[in-house]
Design a protein around this nucleic acid. Structure first.
Lengths: 244, 244
DNA sequence: TAAATACAAGTTGTATACATTTTACAAGCC
DNA sequence: GGCTTGTAAAATGTATACAACTTGTATTTA
């Protein structure tokens, strides 16, 4: 990609490959991961594969079996809700500390510009809106926003967000028509504006509360989907690991 | 130990060995970790060593160098404070969710019994008190307390706590005489009681606030030590990685 | 003299061979 | 008939050999 050398190319391939196999549902939750089978399937050797499995274990997508090896982790409803709450708390902390310590005007301007771009992408009819551009800009905005925090906190946010269902964008799919995403999107935009404003005014406590509320909305959406019948749930690949 | 088989013995040895070398200060912050040197020093092969380095990278104790390999991470004052704050919000979340969902009386009783044991260990004169027993019971209490949360949250708490300076116990050393630990210990005990009480009464918000305050105390202690001259700082091995 | 380049040594990433453990299956025993 | 035990196969953990890249140094050239 950017500055990343092609040094650890195989490890990256292994990581993405296994993650895709799990999220897409090709390997079911709870089933054991055979190293030899994965090696054959991904066309790499065992060493980088094992590195990838170890990292996925740290991320929480797979779990180590006491007797050896790994299995795809399955998530209960409680696990899923906790991951969302976790994200809210972490993002809240990131914003509170950023607000307390202050943020350079240049970075604030960057955030506002991104929000303007998102508004622009959302403009127009539902059918005509630039959905892909929205998703892209939204992701960039979040990166920059949590990027205001220190490395220590950013790392945790990224880790939690790597769980497939922890990110709200996992439920935004125009084609699949999952959720009434229009209202959800506008609501999220309003919250984004409020968060940036709170940081600019250096109101740390308010910024933190807003971030939590932001996650709360995501939690409600998630619980709504989980309460539906399986046909709706199946439209969200991120939920293939959730049992019950 | 308990049910853990000796299957991954070398990996465990590598993990503990490297961690000790870093925390003890034998390998300085910022310096590069040579795999061959570590292999020779620890008497293992490169494969389990690399697994250990990867995990330490996830924990945040070492960081990957873009051109390859790892270096011991150095922590700024901000990093250290953020880790404490992080611990506070994570533990707060754990307690809030536990209080909201309720905890079985048996587990609550277990916690109270541990607190009684800690009180007993603290009884008597400063010189006579059973310091080791206090440290042991205190660790068990914290394990049980955060154990009330789901696996997802517990994992994060354990990860953050693994940073050498993130745990308050890193600053409790009777021999070294770091901090006026007596007052600190009694204060922590009072907070522990209040947290357990809040959970029992199912007051989630209060439990969360108490956990945060608990971490706040740790942050104050930490900042106090950091503001002292190097001679005091050197008495706390956990701070060998902190620059400035 | 300073900069650039080529070369060499050292280091990491990858692949694979080996050893130990787990596990499944079948035969034997109570 | 059910349980235990022994053996074989399979899978994981470990060690090491190999290859590619990085980096420091020395030599050459402008």
């Amino acid at each position: 990609m950017s500055g990343k050398s092609a040094r650890a190319a195989q490890s990256q391939r292994a990581l993405m490959g296994v993650r895709d196999l799990i999220i897409s549902g090709e390997i079911r939750a709870g089933s054991r991961l055979s190293e030899l089978a994965l090696v054959e399937r991904l066309g790499i050797s065992r060493t980088p594969l094992r590195a990838a499995l170890a990292q996925l274990g740290q991320e929480g997508l797979v779990e180590a079996i006491p007797s050896g090896g790994y299995a795809v982790r399955s998530f209960s409803r409680e696990d899923v809700i906790d991951a969302i709450e976790l994200r809210g708390v972490l993002e809240g902390l990131a914003l509170r500390l950023a607000a307390e310590r202050g943020v350079a005007p240049a970075r604030m301007g960057e955030l506002v510009r991104l929000l303007d771009g998102i508004d622009e992408a959302l403009r127009g009819d539902v059918e005509d809106m630039d959905f892909d551009r929205y998703v892209d800009l939204n992701a960039t905005f979040h990166e920059k926003l949590w990027g205001l925090a220190s490395q220590t906190i950013r790392r945790e946010i990224e880790r939690v967000t790597s769980l497939p269902f922890a990110s709200p964008s996992a439920f935004l799919d125009k084609q699949a028509g999952v959720l009434e995403f229009r209202r959800s999107l506008y609501g999220a935009q309003a919250q984004h504006r409020a968060m940036v404003s709170a940081i600019a005014l250096r109101e740390g406590t308010r910024a933190e509360a807003l971030a939590r509320e932001h996650a709360r909305l995501a939690r409600q959406n998630l619980e709504f989907v989980l309460d539906q019948d399986r046909s709706l749930i199946r439209r969200v690949p991120a939920l293939s690991l959730v049992v019950g």
